[in-house]
Design a protein around this nucleic acid. Structure first.
Length: 298
DNA sequence: AGACATGTTGCTCA
DNA sequence: ATGAGCAACATGTC
């Protein structure tokens, strides 16, 4: 479920419920698989009587900062995998089978659940945020995410389908299956096109749609400012591919023609054949085209 | 019953 | 050494 914007939605949900609150009790469902950098017992010891002081989301991860009872900093990193989610429940909440981590304050229970357990629970103690967090690639909406870095990355991954390349977190942090399809659809680029075959104008368009879709998705799904929508996806307009991509007989909201689905780059992809074409472009020396053209002057 | 799922990773082969 | 492709992970749902 969770990509960039859903992750921000979940972060906000916990933050809204418990920012500044003190953890009274910790419940863990110990499946060693999820607890990566520290065993569940360490979380119990450090987080009981700790205060939640900060939270942030980047790519598909979240980092919650705490101050422990001993006044030291502690960091809880969460990755939601394929099926993870964060919810807020009453303090009477009885942890269910897949509630792997529950933090109880005096008024709420913060619940992390993940049936398939592809997620991660990272925990470290110390003044600095953990290394995996600071190494996350520059956000899609940030200044360092430039068209040049995208062009360079696409050149290096030139033989892979663009769809597969967009899923690579080292350059496109937070993009997942639906966001990749959504922005390719907006950019009118077929998901199976090889990354290296995109011309400069297409690369620029793709880069712009990365930022655009990231911004739109964050607003629609996680809300603006302090506001949080009642649930995921309730504010996603029908003008997006999102609301049509899984429907049987779904139609492209722009062309009104049928959508197509196939496995591309190892994932089921959805696109609008009437809008996103393979080949049939000036297929000549698109690969290494240089700018200079001084000769035209005279 | 069987296909499939909004993600990552570790392995193989080129 | 670098990059592409794919099985595996574990469980729920249609």
């Amino acid at each position: 479920m969770p990509e960039l914007a859903e992750v921000e939605f979940f972060r906000k949900r916990w933050d809204q419920a418990a920012h500044g609150a003190r953890i009274l009790r910790v419940h863990t469902h110990d499946t060693k698989k999820l607890f990566r950098s520290a065993p569940a017992a360490t979380l119990h010891a450090a987080l009981t009587h700790a205060t939640l002081t900060s939270s942030a989301a980047a790519a598909k991860q979240m980092l919650f900062g705490f101050v422990t009872a001993e006044k030291t900093q502690a960091w809880l990193g969460l990755h939601l995998g394929m099926t993870g989610e964060l919810s807020v429940a009453p303090t009477t909440h009885v942890p269910r089978k897949h509630d792997h981590l529950v933090l109880f304050t005096d008024r709420q229970a913060l619940v992390f659940s993940d049936p398939r357990m592809f997620g991660k629970i990272e925990f470290t103690v110390g003044p600095e945020a953990p290394g995996w967090w600071t190494k996350i690639a520059p956000a899609l909406c940030s200044a360092p995410f430039t068209v040049a870095t995208v062009a360079d990355f696409l050149r290096r991954r030139g033989r892979a389908p663009i769809k597969a390349v967009l899923l690579m977190q080292e350059r496109f942090p937070g993009i997942g299956n639906w966001m990749a399809d959504e922005l390719l659809w907006r950019a009118a680029i077929h998901p199976a096109r090889l990354a290296g075959s995109l011309g400069p104008a297409e690369v620029r368009l793709l880069w712009r749609e990365c930022r655009h879709v990231a911004r739109l998705a964050l607003t629609a799904i996680a809300g603006r400012g302090k506001k949080l929508p009642p649930d995921l996806n309730v504010n996603i307009p029908d003008s997006w591919l999102f609301n049509h991509r899984w429907q049987k007989g779904g139609l492209c909201p722009i062309t009104k023609k049928p959508l197509a689905r196939a496995e591309i780059g190892g994932r089921t992809s959805c696109w609008s054949p009437a809008r996103q074409k393979l080949g049939a472009r000036p297929s000549s020396a698109v690969l290494s085209r240089k700018r200079p053209r001084a000769a035209v002057l005279s």
